[in-house]
């Protein structure tokens, strides 16, 4: 029994890993295609039909590039930087519920690697450790521009983590649990959290943009001022790891947005499908729905990137500390008051 569970979870983790990688790979293509579409161009269309093999070609190119090592006394830390970035981008997927459950040959498979009751804190722990990837990499590059970019990026990350944490507090107050599985289950049908926590959702969304280092908050790689950001000195696949980790983080963060606020695997009429076509069919459709939601958020990330210009650094800090944090605290107070009123009179 025990070893069967370990094998099952092992297979599941490998599948999730593969899907994350695949999504990250094709996010790079989607980004270029959407950019081309928004700018009235064609986009990459040489490798494969309509550019479908472009990510493979990109990967091959990065692997084949010359491995350049700057003159730094910290070779180990230099390699450690992108490794941490990539690992931390992938670690979060362990606690996300990708679906409800499936019945395969009388055996119930829960579609989640692990369900801990402090899953939300786990997400934040991984997020806060991810800062080290940028900091260590930027410092070990032994380059003033890299160091400045790393300091910028990490101060941005830790500033927006505060607002993000506070916006989540209101959601936890409302749902009364920190387990992502229970939060997902609570949003049955159209009972999505975004309708109860619109302000919290907007704060969380803005913070997600900042946490994944995407435009309008991509000050880390502000090429006009800082050459190439914290990965100026990186080349070959180490550079690829930083960029790839960013796309993996975008996928994971879209998944978190969909699970926390947009009903996870729930969709209207799920119980009807379960009654008429069987519970398995309903849950498989649920997985499909979750991935559609994730793809929508990934598209949203790209849409914003190619629409809105970059913030200035002081604007970024003002937005984080003077707008989002007070708003998030007001949201907590408001949620508390509404919960008490709803308990008493409804």
């Amino acid at each position: 029994m025990d070893s069967a569970l370990i094998i099952e979870k092992g297979i599941f983790i490998v599948v999730i890993f593969a899907i994350t990688m695949l999504m990250a790979m094709y996010s790079t293509l989607a980004e270029r295609k959407i950019a081309a579409w928004l700018q009235d161009r064609i986009g990459p269309n040489r490798a494969g039909k309509g550019g479908i093999l472009q990510p493979l070609a990109d990967g091959l190119k990065l692997f084949a590039k010359e491995e350049f090592m700057p003159d730094t006394p910290n070779k180990f830390l230099f390699i450690l930087g992108p490794a941490i970035s990539m690992t931390m981008a992938l670690l979060t997927s362990a606690v996300l519920p990708w679906g409800d459950k499936l019945e395969i040959a009388g055996h119930t498979v829960i579609l989640q690697a692990t369900d801990i009751d402090v899953a939300m804190l786990y997400v934040f722990a991984v997020l806060s450790v991810g800062v080290y990837g940028i900091m260590i990499g930027g410092w070990a590059s032994n380059n003033k521009y890299s160091l400045m970019a790393a300091l910028r990026a990490s101060s941005q990350l830790i500033s927006y983590e505060v607002a993000m944490g506070l916006s989540i507090v209101a959601l936890i107050m409302m749902s009364g649990t920190m387990s992502l599985r229970e939060i997902a289950a609570q949003q049955e049908g159209m009972n999505w959290n975004v309708f109860y926590q619109p302000l919290g959702f907007i704060i969380f969304l803005v913070c997600s943009f900042a946490e994944t280092n995407r435009t309008p908050f991509d000050l880390a790689e502000c090429e006009a001022e800082l050459i190439g950001g914290h990965h100026t000195e990186y080349s070959s696949m180490k550079m690829g790891f930083y960029l790839f980790g960013e796309y993996a983080a975008m996928f994971i963060s879209s998944a978190i947005l969909a699970i926390l606020y947009f009903g996870a695997y729930n969709y209207p009429g799920m119980s009807w499908v379960a009654e008429n076509w069987g519970a398995n069919m309903a849950n498989i459709l649920g997985i499909v729905v979750l991935f559609i939601k994730i793809c929508f958020f990934i598209f949203f990330y790209m849409w914003v990137r190619w629409t809105i210009p970059r913030f200035r650094y002081d604007q970024l800090m003002n937005l984080g500390w003077k707008m989002l944090i007070p708003l998030a605290i007001a949201n907590i107070v408001l949620t508390g008051v509404i919960i008490i009123i709803a308990d008493k009179y409804l």
Partner: peptide
């Protein structure tokens, strides 16, 4: 981990 590794040591 959040408090010590994620916040204090980063600072």
């Amino acid at each position: 981990i959040i408090v010590y590794a994620g916040a204090i040591m980063v600072l």
